[in-house]
Amino acid sequence: MYAKTPLRWFVLCCCLFSLPSWAIDVGEHAPGLTAKTLNGETFDLHQQANQVVIVNFWASWCEPCREEMPAMQSYYQRHKSEGLKIIAISMDEPEDDAMVRKVMASYSYPAAFQRDADFSAFGRIWRMPMTYVIDKQGIVRKDGSVGAPKIDLPLLEKLVTPLLTAH
């Protein structure tokens, strides 16, 4: 979970302390999030009406982050036709762009670099992975705070599947 070099640790700390410290809570409307994805498309959370959206903040050097990604990919493949969207925001530094692209080549859901995304309304992204689930009405149903369980298929089935079938 920690940066692997002193420079990364310093940059991460600077980022953490320069962003607002509030967090969004379950039951609140999701804040805005826009991003230019790795393939050049635009993702706008507020334009995902009637979709269930998983927002995943991750980094290529974060082992727990990479451990969750296959479950999200599998779940996404099974449920994208039912209105599931995933956006993965890489918190990596520019020197790791090649590694981010290499990791994401195995996944079909979109990703973006943090520098190409505006997620400031989410508050401080202070740990990774940090994952949010937003229902069809734009309400946060899972926040990414402390104590959040690891994302795996059973959790996705339990938490997200009912949101996909809700009207």
Results as ranks from 00 to 15, higher is better:
residue 113 F to Y: 03
residue 94 P to D: 08
residue 96 D to F: 04
residue 61 W to H: 10
residue 70 P to G: 08
residue 101 R to C: 02
residue 42 T to A: 10
residue 97 D to S: 12
residue 54 I to N: 08
residue 54 I to D: 15
residue 82 E to L: 13
residue 57 F to S: 04
residue 112 A to C: 08
residue 46 H to F: 09
residue 103 V to L: 06
residue 88 A to F: 00
residue 114 Q to E: 00
residue 71 A to R: 04
residue 40 G to R: 13
residue 80 K to S: 12
residue 70 P to Y: 08
residue 46 H to I: 06
residue 60 S to G: 11
residue 51 Q to H: 14
residue 106 S to G: 14
residue 53 V to E: 04
residue 63 E to S: 14
residue 120 S to N: 07
residue 67 E to M: 06
residue 104 M to F: 03
residue 93 E to R: 00
residue 38 L to Y: 07
residue 63 E to L: 15
residue 90 S to A: 14
residue 77 Q to T: 13
residue 69 M to K: 03
residue 122 F to T: 00
residue 82 E to A: 14
residue 65 C to K: 06
residue 79 H to S: 06
residue 70 P to D: 04
residue 64 P to N: 01
residue 68 E to G: 15
residue 68 E to Q: 11
residue 118 D to Y: 00
residue 120 S to T: 15
residue 80 K to Q: 15
residue 117 A to S: 13
residue 80 K to H: 15
residue 112 A to R: 02
residue 87 I to C: 00
residue 94 P to F: 01
residue 100 V to S: 03
residue 81 S to K: 13
residue 51 Q to L: 07
residue 107 Y to L: 07
residue 94 P to C: 06
residue 97 D to N: 12
residue 79 H to M: 06
residue 85 K to Y: 08
residue 60 S to F: 07
residue 51 Q to V: 12
residue 78 R to Y: 10
residue 83 G to Q: 11
residue 109 Y to Q: 02
residue 94 P to K: 11
residue 77 Q to N: 14
residue 82 E to G: 10
residue 111 A to C: 05
residue 123 G to Q: 10
residue 108 S to E: 10
residue 114 Q to A: 09
residue 53 V to P: 04
residue 112 A to M: 01
residue 61 W to P: 05
residue 81 S to W: 08
residue 38 L to F: 11
residue 62 C to H: 10
residue 41 E to I: 04
residue 49 A to G: 10
residue 76 Y to W: 15
residue 94 P to A: 12
residue 41 E to F: 08
residue 67 E to D: 09
residue 65 C to H: 07
residue 117 A to F: 00
residue 44 D to I: 14
residue 97 D to E: 14
residue 111 A to D: 12
residue 37 T to G: 12
residue 81 S to M: 11
residue 93 E to K: 01
residue 89 I to N: 11
residue 79 H to R: 13
residue 80 K to G: 06
residue 62 C to K: 11
residue 37 T to Q: 03
residue 91 M to V: 03
residue 111 A to G: 13
residue 57 F to T: 03
residue 62 C to P: 09
residue 38 L to K: 10
residue 102 K to C: 08
residue 100 V to D: 00
residue 59 A to I: 09
residue 111 A to F: 03
residue 87 I to F: 01
residue 121 A to P: 02
residue 36 K to N: 13
residue 84 L to A: 02
residue 88 A to N: 01
residue 56 N to W: 02
residue 38 L to N: 05
residue 122 F to Y: 12
residue 107 Y to S: 03
residue 86 I to G: 07
residue 82 E to T: 05
residue 107 Y to M: 04
residue 95 E to K: 09
residue 49 A to D: 13
residue 60 S to D: 05
residue 83 G to W: 03
residue 101 R to I: 01
residue 83 G to F: 07
residue 96 D to G: 03
residue 51 Q to G: 04
residue 67 E to L: 11
residue 108 S to K: 14
residue 120 S to P: 06
residue 70 P to S: 07
residue 51 Q to M: 12
residue 77 Q to V: 14
residue 38 L to Q: 12
residue 91 M to C: 10
residue 92 D to P: 05
residue 116 D to C: 05
residue 89 I to Y: 00
residue 51 Q to W: 02
residue 78 R to W: 03
residue 89 I to A: 09
residue 52 V to F: 05
residue 36 K to S: 12
residue 55 V to C: 04
residue 73 Q to I: 03
residue 117 A to V: 07
residue 116 D to A: 06
residue 50 N to C: 09
residue 39 N to C: 00
residue 78 R to I: 08
residue 117 A to G: 08
residue 106 S to H: 14
residue 50 N to H: 15
residue 119 F to Y: 11
